[in-house]
Simulated scan of single mutants.
Amino acid sequence: MQKVKTELKSELAQGIDTLDSAQALEALLGGQINAVNALQSCIPAIIKAAKAATSSIRSGGNLCYVGAGSSGLMALSDSLEISGTFGVSMSQIKILFAGAPDTLVDMRGGAEDDTDLAKTDVKDTNLKAGDCAILVSASGNTPYTVSAQHELKQLGVTTIAIANNNPSELLNNADIAIHLDTPPEVIAGSTRLGAGTAQKIALNMISTLMGIELGHIHDGLMVNLKADNAKLVERSLSMVKDIAQCDLSTAKNTLQQAKGNVKLAVLLAAGAQNEHAAERMLIEHGGVLRRCLEEIRSDENINA
Rank of each mutant, 00 (worst) to 15 (best):
M1Y: 13
Q2Y: 02
V4P: 09
T6F: 11
E7T: 11
A13L: 03
G15I: 05
G15N: 06
T18S: 11
A24P: 06
L25D: 01
G31E: 09
N34D: 15
A38Y: 07
L39S: 11
Q40R: 15
I47P: 06
K48G: 03
A50Y: 06
A53S: 10
S56V: 10
G60F: 12
L63Q: 04
C64W: 00
C64A: 14
Y65V: 00
S71Q: 03
S71D: 02
G72Y: 01
E81Y: 06
F86L: 01
V88D: 03
S89M: 05
M90A: 02
S91A: 11
Q92N: 07
G99S: 11
A100M: 02
L104R: 13
V105R: 13
R108L: 11
G110A: 10
D114Y: 04
D116E: 14
K119G: 10
V122W: 05
T125N: 03
N126G: 05
A129C: 00
D131L: 02
A133L: 00
A138H: 00
P143F: 07
A148P: 01
H150W: 06
Q154T: 10
T158C: 05
T158N: 03
A161W: 02
A161E: 01
I162W: 07
I162N: 02
N166P: 00
E169S: 10
E169G: 08
L171I: 04
N172I: 03
N173I: 03
A177D: 02
I178S: 07
T182L: 08
P183C: 09
P183K: 06
G189Q: 07
T191H: 09
A195D: 05
A198C: 06
Q199T: 01
Q199G: 04
K200P: 08
A202W: 08
M205H: 00
I206A: 03
S207R: 02
I212Q: 07
L214K: 05
L214C: 08
V223L: 05
N229C: 09
L232I: 06
L232R: 03
R235G: 07
L237R: 12
M239N: 07
V240S: 05
V240P: 10
K241D: 12
D242W: 01
D242A: 14
I243D: 05
A244N: 09
A244D: 01
L248N: 11
S249Y: 14
A251F: 09
K252H: 10
N253V: 12
L255Y: 03
G260K: 09
A270F: 02
A272M: 12
A272P: 06
A272S: 13
A272Y: 08
N274L: 09
E275A: 09
H276W: 12
A278D: 15
L289D: 09
L293A: 06
E295L: 13
E295K: 15
S298M: 13
S298E: 13
E300H: 15
N301Q: 15
N303K: 14
